[in-house]
């Protein structure tokens, strides 16, 4: 029983990782930028979600506001930060992004205070029993959201004209530009979608923990970098598998090797071991 419960807790945790990391890997696949500040948008969305929900009493409104705002801020970050330094060595964008993330974290601390916010009455906390396992509604919704969002994403990428243009640009930007696909618009789209996904994850984590803090993005941020490397940089399916696997490994690791290794260090131990054996990650990079 403990085994199954740990497994399910791991899947729930892994689902939140997946929603964050997929946006990150999409951006990396297109631009070869490690977008650390991605987690800043995750935190921003969590704050917006809680504030709006508390103000107007509607969680759906909170989610919509958080998602749209984060999506737009993501596009603005691309336009103002990354676009001018894309042709510089890769570490330039990476260090700029880390700097931006740290600055964002401190700004949240200054604006919202260091102690964090909670929902005044947290929605979706009612307990459901499925096959004898007690789960909160928001935990089930997290897993469902993960499946639905990534399903929609896969459908867009495979079946729609927008998705075909997007994949063409990832494969060969110059060739697809000569076929009339505007590469800049594709970048805007990817940043908007990726940031909106991070925003959904932010609100979901806020529901799961009912606590939003300035530093809540730090661990997911660095961990999702490990995840996208494990999943093969730019590979969405690999990222999904790596996220869920890490969630499960962490859930078991905390119980069985927690005395030796911190929970947050497990991801990196896993990463270092995998990369030493297979330097390209578990799955093929795009």
């Amino acid at each position: 029983m403990l085994f199954i419960e740990l497994f399910i807790q791991g899947l729930i945790q892994g689902s939140t990782y997946a929603i964050i990391a997929v946006g990150l890997t999409l951006i990396y696949g297109l631009l070869r930028v490690l977008h650390v500040a991605h987690a800043g948008l995750f935190t921003l969305a969590a704050y917006l979600g809680v504030t709006v929900t508390n103000q107007f009493g509607s969680l759906s409104l909170g989610i919509v506001v958080a998602t749209l705002t984060s999506g737009i801020v993501g596009v603005v970050i691309y336009r103002l930060v990354y676009e001018p330094i894309l042709n510089k060595p890769p570490y330039v964008a990476l260090i700029a992004s880390i700097g931006l993330y740290i600055a964002m974290e401190e700004l949240f601390r200054l604006i919202f205070g260091p102690f964090g916010l909670s929902f005044s009455s947290a929605p979706l906390q009612n307990v459901v029993v499925i096959f004898g396992i007690h789960l909160r509604a928001c935990q089930i919704i997290t897993v469902i959201t993960n499946v639905v969002l990534l399903g929609i994403l896969a459908w867009i990428a495979q079946k729609t004209r927008v998705g075909i243009g997007w994949r063409a640009t990832v494969d060969d930007p110059e060739m697809s530009a000569s076929f009339g696909i505007d590469p800049i618009r594709v970048r805007y789209l990817v940043f908007f979608v990726g940031s909106a996904l991070a925003a959904v994850a932010g609100v979901l984590v806020a529901l799961l923990t009912n606590l939003v803090e300035p530093t809540m993005g730090a661990v997911p941020s660095y961990k999702s970098l490990a995840i996208i490397v494990l999943g093969g940089l730019g590979n969405v399916f690999g990222t999904l598998i790596a996220s869920l696997a890490l969630g499960v490994i962490e859930a078991f690791g905390t119980i069985y090797i927690g005395d030796f290794l911190d929970r947050d260090a497990i991801a990196f131990a896993f990463l270092v071991v995998v990369l030493m054996i297979k330097p390209t990650g578990l799955f093929k990079s795009r």
Binding site: Y28, R32, L34, P90, Y91, L94, Y222, L225, A226, V229, L233, D262, D264, A265, A267, F268, A269, L271, V272, L275, P279
Partner: peptide
């Protein structure tokens, strides 16, 4: 190399 190395060394810090 490069991005991968950055993430591995970041991992070392956390480890």
């Amino acid at each position: 190399k490069e991005d991968f190395l950055a993430i591995v060394t970041m991992g070392v810090a956390f480890l």
